[in-house]
Design a protein around this nucleic acid. Structure first.
Lengths: 252, 252
DNA sequence: CTGTTTATCGTCAGGGAGACGACTATGATC
DNA sequence: GATCATAGTCGTCTCCCTGACGATAAACAG
């Protein structure tokens, strides 16, 4: 099937971002309010068109910087920016009612940002607990104090896939450190796991596991009491990216 | 950023297929020879354009059927067709020298097909051991008896990603059964793992693991001696899709 | 000073995996 | 038919990891 360049059906290609962070013991996703039709006024994932001469990952990084000011560390890299990776591609024929759009979704894991409304973009944006957005099943931490509304387009499905990817990936990789500031304590890292998985973990077993895995954490020598209680050692993310054996999330 | 439907850059969208099978103790990928420029005469992954009103997965399934006659069981389903799932999307600006093409790669795991040249397509197609295609590191089983040649476009990279996905996914899922005929023995399943991972596994421990995992295998009652030696029980794939705990491939 | 919070170290039992020994049931070969 | 090679299947033993949980340490709040 030698294809004919003059006869291919035209598509628009976008990138959509599932930007996750942990705020106040809850896994949150960045959502923006749509300013125009379709789905005007509804919340959606941030995203935009891929430019004609732009790589997909570069487009995702550009959108991320535009929305949050974060500068991603593509494909690994030390803590200090955000982790960015391709998630999946969504291309159902009528997912956008106006035209045929194929969206390459990306997943971003970011530390908690001080800015309440991230980025200086004119659109309103907020961090929404993933439990408050329909399409996710983690209703445990969802207490109903916020407006629950389904996302525009198929973004609910994309968010669900991104959350599931994050939940499973921190099992066998050191990616959870991407949710932490450059220096963090074992307890802070544990609270990340608890927020992402929505379960409580035993502090003693968790401490044994993460400090006993070579290359996962490297002590910086400092300590902190910012969590209250006894001072805790500070760590940086080590070079290891794969956890072997993995830390499996507890059964139902 | 309310986007303007009349001003988006146009892309062509294709699907490319990484079709894997196990033949004669080796993991093999389906490759087709290109009939026209660019890369004329080089081997490439099968694939083609997504039609204007066609879902991505449907396009992948259609291409698969056109190339091999296989009818995929999308997203799980019992043994009898092939497993198909989305792999990743490749969209570097100049990956196709003619125009901007974004390719949504899919991964297919198929049982060994009797047909030497799969499908009745006019193009020449063959099963190539993945070790014989550059871009993969599993050189152990590659003995140099076949022509080694790098694939067209970025298909070497796509193949490598697909092989890595298959290698890691059979660790924690029952997907390895997709490489097997509807009824198979424990030994045949073990040889699938050995071929995909390129390692030797202990038959006794493997037998204990797979027969001891609930829902992985269900005995059909029959036996076979098609492998020689003592008759072996026949099994079908059970309903379980996730292996818990996983069967981790041995270290280096 | 006492209670509370968080961090960290230890102990113990159970499960799973790797390393093997032993036995079984076929077909092939002498 | 006896023997051998080939696979399959069952057991055992040890080590390591994990989950459950007791105990101690070091800060702060009253």
């Amino acid at each position: 099937m030698p294809y004919d360049p003059s006869a291919y059906p035209p598509f628009a290609v976008t990138v959509d971002l599932v930007v996750l962070t942990v705020r106040k013991h809850a896994l949150c996703a960045l959502v923006v309010r749509r300013g125009g039709p379709p789905f005007q006024g509804r919340w959606a994932l941030p995203g935009g068109f891929v430019r004609g001469d732009e790589d997909l990952e570069a487009a995702a990084a550009r959108e991320l910087t535009e929305e949050t000011g974060l500068r991603p560390h593509v494909s690994g890299g030390q803590n200090a920016g955000a982790h960015l990776e391709q998630l999946a591609t969504y291309g159902a024929p009528r997912r956008d009612p106006r035209m045929r759009v194929v969206s390459v979704a990306h997943l971003v894991l970011a530390p908690d940002l001080p800015s309440p409304t991230p980025g200086g973009d004119a659109r309103s944006a907020r961090w929404a607990p993933v439990g408050s957005l329909s399409g996710t099943d983690s209703g445990a931490e969802w207490d109903g104090t916020e407006q629950q509304e389904s996302l525009a387009f198929d973004h609910g499905e994309i968010l669900r896939d991104g959350v599931e990817r994050a939940r499973s990936k921190i099992e066998y990789s050191s990616l959870a450190t991407a949710f932490c500031p450059p220096e963090f304590t074992v307890g802070e890292l544990r609270r990340v796991y608890e927020a992402v998985w929505g379960v409580a973990l035993d502090p003693r077993n968790f401490h044994r596991k993460v400090t006993g895995t070579p290359g996962f954490l490297v002590p910086t020598g400092g300590t902190t009491t910012r969590q209250g209680g006894r001072p805790a050692q500070l760590f940086r993310a080590g070079g290891a990216t794969l956890l072997n054996p993995p830390m499996l999330r507890p059964e139902v």
